[in-house]
Design a binder for these strands. Structure first.
Lengths: 222, 222
DNA sequence: ACATTATTGAACGGTTCCGTATAATAAAAC
DNA sequence: GTTTTATTATACGGAACCGTTCAATAATGT
């Protein structure tokens, strides 16, 4: 789905470069502006002209790169998911006891999910999933499912190292992440003033710790 | 005009009834139509005229009852929250062992939250919360917070009856409900084909049971 | 110089929709 | 009947915005 046009800045091939070259940087700028508009005020409220203005580009250029408003939205979602994948790739947290590792993982998870942009992204994405199911799967694969796999893997290693005793690590991972999110997830999505909230929220530490406590009470090797 | 016939007949007060009386039934019908439009296709995509047509009412009548489109939306949310409050009022589940009661509660919760209408309601509401925070609190108070209080209360009684041993029942309630929702919550909101999904989903029983298992393993009276 | 492609700015047709206004009609009390 | 209010159908002003078109300009090649 990516570049039908040659994306090379330098005339590497040197054989086919006729006329004014495409400014490849503009696509990324447009996507950035689109992200800002789409995930702050929503798809319907966003206008292509406003996005183009924010990107410092003509509206025609936007339509030149992206087929339609919907295509631009899908591209913006894909881009955001790519960013998410990168951000979630640094989740090693190899040091310390199993308890320390789990708490660390939990706090990282909360810090990542509770950000303004993530909350808004989730909100506006969920609505559009209704008449474009693919973007929902895009998000699931880039975010929640990856996180779940990562935590399951962490638990697998701990089991292998004899630190934990778990039959079904995927189920256990779901237990832990579910407890960590808890009610706070809903409060964040429907509560007032997400911009003013501290990230992570004051109760996050207590919530994560108590979740890990309960988790270890059941899954520690006796 | 409509062949619906007048629904109001009795001049109850009999002292102040000048001119054609207001058809009080229409407000509820309008709200029903508004709910359908708003929570199926979203606020921006809904048009007052379409809502009026669905309700079998003139557009002017809609504006006669509700100040603006936003006011109508807020009223629809309020109405839906009232319905939710009623639906969540029958949560006795007094019989059986503590394990049976918790599983029952969990399955009821899943069945209630996983419905199509609820998922769509949540989606479209979350978006509008961004520039109307009050409706978010309306929902939180009618739904999640009520459910949380109910579960906490259930736990309190179990503790009092000597069935469980819990320091912080509110924290414990958050643990349990969090585990019950688990990943499935995200899968439902961002996954494909919510209309085709079975309610409760096939894995719900297993998820609820394993959550209650883990919960009881830690909180049972030794 | 020239040819070729990218980009811009402005304008246009078409659509949708909010909120209001107006004239006509319906349903009650007197 | 008359009076009074609710409701309808229709139309309108105004705004927003999508996607396209066109002429003019910019940036690269030969």
């Amino acid at each position: 789905m990516s570049g039908k046009t040659s994306t090379s800045i330098k005339p590497a091939a040197a054989n086919k470069a006729l006329g004014r070259p495409v400014d490849t940087a503009k696509s990324a700028i447009i996507l950035g502006a689109a992200r800002h508009e789409f995930f702050n005020i929503g798809f319907a409220q966003s206008s292509i002209e406003s996005i183009a203005a924010r990107a410092g580009v003509s509206k025609v250029t936007v339509y030149n790169r992206f087929k339609s408003k919907e295509a631009l939205f899908a591209a913006a979602v894909g881009n955001e998911c790519a960013v998410m994948r990168k951000a979630l790739s640094v989740e090693a947290t190899a040091g310390g006891s199993i308890r320390e590792r789990l708490v660390h993982f939990g706090m990282e998870m909360v810090a990542f999910l509770w950000r303004d942009e993530m909350v808004r992204f989730e909100r506006h994405l969920a609505v559009e999933v209704e008449h474009n199911p693919e973007i929902g799967l895009l998000f699931l694969d880039a975010g929640p499912r990856r996180l779940h796999k990562a935590l399951s893997h962490l638990l697998d290693e701990a089991v292998e190292a004899g630190e934990l005793q778990i039959d079904d690590t995927e189920q256990a991972a779901e237990h832990l992440s579910g407890m960590i999110k808890g009610l706070a997830d809903l409060e964040r999505r429907f509560g007032a003033n997400i911009s003013q909230a501290k990230i992570p929220d004051p109760k996050a530490k207590k919530r994560v710790n108590s979740a890990v406590d309960l988790f270890l009470k059941s899954y520690s090797k006796s």
